[in-house]
Nucleic acid binder design. Structure first.
Length: 467
RNA sequence: GCUCCCUUCGUCUAGAGGCCUAGGACACGGCCCUCUCAAGGCUGUAACACGGGUUCGAAUCCCGUAGGGAGCGCCA
């Protein structure tokens, strides 16, 4: 039997970290077993579902590279099918019409809560066949009254729910539209889903869904309920925890493979390994290695992983996303060769592509000012003269390679009787305006001879009156 | 309130009864490297929620307790 998994978000908001992690595990499992990954949009709540959310979910999945083999299917387009199944259930006596008004149900709930009981429908219309005029009935599933629903969960193990704890849930509203718990069952059945992998907030729904599947004469799929992802403070992930839409991570300069690697390690592990390529994850992923406890989202570790992935990726991989980041700063980085050198020079000193872009602006734009504190610390009359000598040397340097530049700077510093840093820092300040950059020789090499000469000359003039 | 789930360093985790003096990673501190910042190397601080069992032996199995979470909608 081929494995078939599905990711089934409801388009009532953006695709967030938790959803992406669920999608990742579904995708990994399908890919690992040569199965199919299906995307299904659960938009039965016509009020709250939006086209914008659907677009964002699909964009997010695409950016992450979690490609689906079938779909996207829309529940809103399958109402006829749901109706058909409801009619069948009704005909077989596995569902019934309930004429309770919302007010009546609210009163029932209030009384139960007052008595300290779990609020639930008491089945008052379960055996009635009459109708009540003036009220549009809802359809309820006739849940077994006795026995237990045993869920064999792939991550939690056997979980037993007593049927007496379950009530007859509504599968169709008074207006005839089907509800979530029912649609999921019909869809998973029709789409031949073999493994339902989802957040463990759904675990309490599972016995009802399984009972419906059984009533429909189907064998339940394998269920795997993943632990939740919490915010850094251990509280439920919410808007307060910063970036929430996965597209925001793209915009902030994270590599999808790094985000996915981070997310995979939340709740899953393979020995002591921390860094995984997509291929490795596909090859190594197994539901058996998923743990049961919720985990807190740690932005620091994500940043570290992103850097590790940036350092390992072929430099070409970073060209486009870095170019987009630079464009944000108004820079048109159209020279691939130069950009590639910048990537190699900067990747080990940035957590994100955005950071990399920000610290690389000077490669395209001469500094408008020099960092005051750094000038006071590094610029003296002596450095001005050293710079003048370096400048003369640069002019006569035909080989503008990092090695040649390094040799020249080293010689000038040695002749002046100072350590390399005494010259490197002022030069760095001259070309980038601040005290931080990649190694000075590499920096000047990438910048180019003409630009270096212009910037250094300008700085030398500005610092003429240094003490 | 009821049902269900969860519980190893601050965080992510390894750990399937002896290999645990509890390992790795992020973060944090120190040292090294070094033209800055990083990256890298070495190193340090830091955890089995608690209480009972079972066993020659328990982080690992069982039972309680505590804490956390989810669900209990004509939402998904």
């Amino acid at each position: 039997m081929t494995v078939r998994t599905r990711f089934a978000p409801s388009p009532t908001g953006y695709l967030h970290i938790g959803g992406l992690r669920t999608a990742l595990f579904c995708w990994l499992y399908a890919r690992r077993h040569g199965g199919k990954f299906i995307l299904r949009i659960e938009d039965t709540d016509l009020e709250r579902s939006t086209q914008e959310a659907i677009r964002q979910i699909i964009d997010g999945m695409q950016w992450a590279g979690l490609d689906h083999d079938e779909g996207p299917f829309y529940q809103s387009k399958r109402f006829a099918r749901y109706q058909e199944v409801i009619d069948g259930l009704l005909a077989e006596g596995n569902a019934y019409r309930c004429y309770c008004s919302k007010e009546e149900l609210e009163a029932l709930r209030a009384a139960q809560v007052a008595r300290g009981e779990k609020p639930r429908y008491d089945g008052r219309w379960r055996e009635r066949t009459d109708a009540r005029s003036g009220v549009d009935p809802v359809i309820r599933f006739k849940n077994p009254l006795t026995g237990a629903a045993v869920v064999e969960d792939a991550v939690h193990g056997r979980v037993v729910f007593q049927n007496s704890e379950l009530d007859d849930l509504i599968i169709a509203r008074a207006d005839g539209t089907p509800t979530y718990n029912f649609c999921v069952v019909v869809d998973d059945m029709d789409m031949n889903i073999t493994h339902v992998i989802r957040g463990d907030d759904h675990l309490p729904n599972t016995p009802r869904q399984q009972n419906m599947l059984l009533a429909l004469g189907r064998r339940p799929p394998v269920y795997a309920h993943l632990p939740m992802i919490l915010g850094a403070d251990g509280a439920k992930l919410s808007k307060r925890h910063g970036a929430v839409s996965v597209l925001q991570y793209r915009d902030e300069g994270y590599l999808p493979e790094a985000l996915l690697n981070y997310l995979a390690r939340l709740g899953w592990s393979h020995g002591d390994q921390e860094i995984f390529s997509m291929d490795e994850m596909v090859r190594l992923f197994d539901i058996a290695d998923v743990n049961k406890s919720a985990s807190a989202f740690d932005a620091e570790k994500l940043g570290w992983l992103n850097q590790q992935h940036m350092m390992r990726a072929p430099p070409d991989r970073l060209l486009e996303p870095l170019r987009r980041q630079l464009a944000q700063a108004g820079i048109d980085a159209d020279d691939d060769q130069k950009l590639g050198r910048i990537v190699v020079a900067q990747r080990e000193r940035a957590k994100t592509l955005r950071e990399m872009a920000q610290s690389s602006v000077f490669f395209y734009r001469a500094p408008q000012a020099y960092d005051d504190k750094a000038v006071r610390k590094h610029v003296t009359a002596q450095t001005v003269s050293l710079i003048a000598q370096a400048l003369r040397g640069f002019r006569g340097l035909d080989d503008w390679s990092a090695a040649a530049i390094h040799g020249l700077i080293g010689a000038v510093a040695a002749a002046g009787g100072v350590a390399l840093g005494k010259l490197a820092q002022p030069l760095r300040l001259a070309v980038c305006g601040g005290p931080v950059s990649p190694p000075i020789d590499l920096t000047l090499a990438i910048l180019g001879k003409d630009e270096t000469l212009a910037r250094v000359a300008r700085a030398a003039a500005a610092w003429q009156s240094a003490p």
